[in-house]
Structures are given as structure tokens and as C-alpha cells.
Simulated assay, not measured.
Amino acid sequence: MIPVFDGHNDFLQRAVAAGHEAGQLWTEGDGTGHMDLPRLRAGGMVGGFFAMWVPDAETGDVAELLRQKENPPFDLPLPPKVACDQALPLAFAQASALFALERTGTLSVCRSAAEIRAAMDAGRIAAILHMEGAEPLADLDALHLWHAMGLRSMGFVWSRPTAYGHGVPFAFPSSPDRGEGLTDRGKALVRECNALRIIIDLSHLNEKGCDDVARLTDAPLVATHSGAHAICESSRNLTDRQLRRIADTGGVVGLNFNTGFLAPDGRREQFRGFDILLRHLDHMLAILGEDGVALGSDFDGAVMPADLSDAAALPRLTDAMLAHGYGRELVEKIAWRNWLSLVERSWGG
């Protein structure tokens, strides 16, 4: 079985919702969601980026929003900002949940590439603490506190504005060139993340914000869970120009499994087979090269393809890559080696 290191999952929301049963949810599973320890073992997943994410302050008519997203074309308004004092307790709860999983002895929160390798060698899940949207970040001093706790990767925005930048709205068909670039606080955050060697995630950030990061950063550019805009014209996907800019820095893009960001018609339907994922991978490989493409599932945060319904199904994807003509060395790069290389270059050793 080819190991998989994943660029993005939202399991921590499920863990918080489970409360005192979170440990059992993790170690035994309950048949819901996309991942738990038994399914990770079955699918060969050895680690990944575990995201802290804060839901919208005002959800509105959720059923209507979902209906629109399932019937392209659509262009949904950006949700309002979420205040730091609202976001912080939720982020703390999710970080606490991850450290509670570590106490089961089955997972390690990793702060270096060496710790990732040690966890993999010991058969523990190697977890990177990731912040998806900087709402819990009151200021740059708080960034240092989060770093001391283990934060090693962050996106400045989810798909709404923050004090640091502007996310893309959920829209199809749409360019990611929506809204202004980073704020002054966002530009300062780039520099501080570089100083602490925290990975900056471009996923969800609009095109001008991505350009600002590219101008300011001294690290490889990264998008943990995105797709190719040339295949699926979602606002959430990366244009060829953006992919080339990431390639120029030796960066990495993890392919998102969300059907709405994969299907050429933008529909969030559970299509069968792997042809669409392989089209995205082919396109990304042509621009980023063999060292720049990885996986970023969005497990527990999105609608998955029918044949990739949870983490246990990951061998079907790697088998499809092999059958498509990718050699084993390339499949291993995409499945796990490119993320580990990126971490080594971003964090050092």
C-alpha cells in the first residue's frame, strides 16, 4: 500500500462535537464522516494537516445556500467577518481536541520534519496543526503563542474577509480575482510567518492576496487543498498563472477532492471513477512538475466522489494513478513525499 500524507482535513470539528466521546470517535469510528483511525489505517494515510476552522457567525438559510451551490451557475455573497473574541474559543477547542487525540498514543502533533518521520516510523498519525482563517489571531504576539503551542501552517482567510485579507466567494463559473489584496496587517503577518517558518496556505485566498504573499514571502508558495481552474472554473481553484507562480518558488499544491471544485460543470455531485481527478493532476503536473503536486482531500469538510467516499478508499486513487501511467515513484511523490519535502524546505530538518 502506498502511504498518503494529506494536505487538509476538517476532522477536528467532528471531534469537538463529540465532546467526551472524541477519543472513541477517533480510535473506533462511528460510521459517519470521512475519517477516523481505523479508516486512516485501512487507506494508508500516515498523516496530514488538521485544520482549525471557525463557522460563520450568521449561517443564513443553509438549505438555500446548498441548493444554489448544487445548481450552477451561482455567485454567493461573502459571509461577514467573525470577531476574534467569537473565534478564539472555537479554535482553542479544536486545538485541544487534537492534543487530546495525541494522548491516545495513536497520533503525534508534529513541529518538525524529523517529528513527522519519527511518527511515521512509529506507526502514529503525523498531524500538523493548521489554522484555516486567521480570525482567532488577535495580533502578531498571539501568532507566537500559537506557534509555541504547535501551529505550523495557516491560511489567512477562509471564504470570507478577515483583518488580514479577503477570501474568494463560492462562485461558479468565476475567476479567483475577486476583491482587494492583503491588508497592512496581512502583509505584516506574512513577514512574521516567515520569521517563525509557518507555512502560508493560499487556498481560499483571492488572487490579489495570493500575489501579495508571492511578493513578500521568502518561502515556497503552498495551496493545501485547491484544484486547476482550467478544468473547473470555480473561484476556489488556481489559474495557470497562479500555478506557474507557485512552481517558480518550488511550491506545492494539494488536489482538493471536493466534487464541486473538480467537476467541469461545477456540480457537487458524487460522480464515479477517477477520470476527473486525473485530469486535474495531469494539468497540475504539466505546470508544477513532479515535485509540486500533492493531495489535499478536504475530508470531513466537503462532498467526496462516489469512489473516494472516505479515507479507507485512498488506495483506489493511488491504483488509478498507477493505471493511468504514473510510475510508482511519481505516485509516491504525489501521495506523500512532496508534502514531506515541502515541510523540510519550509521548516528546516
Rank of each mutant, 00 (worst) to 15 (best):
G292W: 01
Q242A: 13
T249V: 00
D282S: 15
L262E: 06
R245T: 02
D291R: 02
A306G: 06
L238I: 14
G251I: 03
S297A: 15
T259S: 02
A286H: 12
T239W: 11
L238D: 04
Q242S: 08
N258T: 01
A286L: 07
L285K: 12
H280C: 03
H283V: 07
G251N: 06
G266A: 09
S297W: 01
M284A: 12
L262D: 08
D248K: 15
D300V: 10
T239R: 13
N256P: 08
V303C: 08
A247P: 03
G251F: 08
D265V: 00
C232S: 14
D298S: 06
G251K: 00
G273Q: 09
Q270W: 09
S297V: 08
D307K: 04
D240R: 05
G273Y: 05
V252A: 08
Q270A: 15
D282E: 09
R245P: 03
A294H: 11
D307R: 03
M284Y: 05
E290R: 13
D291Y: 03
P264A: 04
D240A: 13
L238W: 06
L255M: 13
L278T: 03
G296D: 10
E233D: 06
G260K: 00
D275R: 11
L255E: 07
G260E: 00
D310L: 08
V303E: 05
T259G: 00
R236M: 01
A302V: 10
P305E: 13
F261T: 10
